[in-house]
Simulated scan of single mutants.
Amino acid sequence: MIAPAVSTIGAGLSGLALGLSLKSKGISGKIYDLAPGIPRFNYGITLHASTYRPLLGLLKMDEATFRKETAVDGARGEPVIWKDRTHLVKFERGLGFKTRCLAGCDGINSSVSRSLMHKVDADVHPFVAFSGRRRVPTDVFVKVFGQSMAENVMIVHHNGAARLEITISDMTSEYVILGYIYSRQTRSQGSTKDPLHTPLRPSPGAKLTPPALYDEIEALGNLPQPFNTIFHAESMRNDRLLHWLLRSRRPQIDHSKQLADRGAFIIGDAAHGAPLLGGEGANMAITDGIDLAEHIAKRGVDTAAGFSNSKYESWIKFVDESVQRLRDMHNPGGRRH
């Protein structure tokens, strides 16, 4: 098959922002993504105005409409084999293509990065985090949550070292989907390990909820409403829960050089992983996609080294600030909720 000018692996935020921006500049491209079905878990994200405003012209949408109607989700990409600055991309079903311009936008576990150089592990930070979802009838939402969330899509409560968060993920005339997160720093003491902190667990372990979590929720006692309704052990047993590992990965100059030498552009979480809490990775992912399209339009597709060098310092700052926000969120005297 004939390769497009820019082949993008991953249809998450960075990949879609890149593709849309390239199209607006008349540069051909194609996005490849593995999406086995509708994801069981979806999440709300917070976008800064400085991030989404450059997209409005591309989307042909005014700001009011964007703020009212836009929702996004993401997926993951596929393996790559590199040879002689031409990338041979192979998919599980035997399909493939060759391309001279490859953009890896496939997340913190990037198959593109792993295929082009040795694996770079992310740092797992000493925090416990569990995310859940619950559907609440609209009349119940108004009665229980209405006063607290009438003007806020997110509310936060601190109970000792624990941080409790409730967000509105979706709303219809019949029901409201609420997302919630229980998080805290680890409590390991000496040889006694925190039963809720398993940094070496495999990916499928994200769907396994340790019984100790429910014991810990019960020990919180009588929380103020509406937190008492959401963070109720027996109710949580019926919810969809995910055990998050709060990871980050700082860009390394030698790794960036290896990828650039192979002619690959790596952006978004594939280039600079930030924790799910406090990371604001969605904003940086969109910015990366727009910036890369501008770079390619001005300098061509054989300038990966120049792009990574221009972004390196800002990526380092982004990851470091994200980790600090995570710490502040769990510090009662910190600067952020």
Rank of each mutant, 00 (worst) to 15 (best):
M1V: 14
P4T: 15
T8F: 10
G10H: 01
A11Y: 02
G12E: 01
L16T: 11
S24N: 09
K25N: 10
G26F: 03
S28Y: 12
G29V: 00
K30R: 15
K30C: 13
D33E: 14
A35D: 07
G37A: 09
G37R: 08
I38K: 12
F41D: 01
G44E: 01
A49M: 05
T51Q: 04
L55F: 08
L56P: 12
G57L: 04
L58C: 06
K60C: 07
T70W: 11
D73L: 12
D73Y: 11
E78H: 12
P79E: 09
V80I: 15
T86W: 12
H87Y: 13
H87Q: 11
V89E: 00
G104N: 10
C105H: 11
N109G: 15
S110F: 00
S113D: 09
L116D: 03
L116V: 13
K119L: 12
V120S: 12
D121A: 15
S131V: 05
S131E: 01
P137M: 05
T138V: 14
T138H: 13
T138A: 14
V144C: 02
F145D: 06
F145Y: 14
F145H: 07
G146E: 02
N152M: 06
M154A: 13
H157Q: 11
A162T: 10
R163L: 08
E165Y: 06
I166F: 00
T167W: 06
T167C: 09
D170R: 06
T172C: 07
S173I: 05
Y180D: 00
K193V: 12
H197Q: 05
S203H: 14
A206I: 00
A206W: 03
P211W: 03
A212I: 06
L213W: 00
Y214A: 03
Y214T: 03
E216L: 00
N222E: 13
N222K: 14
L223P: 03
L223V: 06
Q225T: 12
P226Q: 02
P226N: 07
P226Y: 10
T229R: 12
A233W: 03
S235T: 13
M236F: 04
N238E: 11
D239V: 03
W244D: 02
H255Q: 14
K257Q: 14
L259K: 09
G268F: 02
H272M: 06
H272F: 02
P275F: 05
L276E: 00
N283K: 10
A285G: 01
T287S: 13
D288G: 05
G289R: 11
I290E: 10
A293F: 03
A297Q: 12
K298A: 15
R299I: 04
V301I: 15
T303G: 10
A305P: 04
A305R: 13
S310E: 09
K311D: 01
K311F: 10
K311C: 11
K311V: 08
S314Q: 08
W315D: 07
W315T: 09
F318V: 06
D320S: 13
D320Y: 02
S322R: 04
S322Y: 02
V323D: 10
V323C: 10
G334H: 06
G334Y: 08
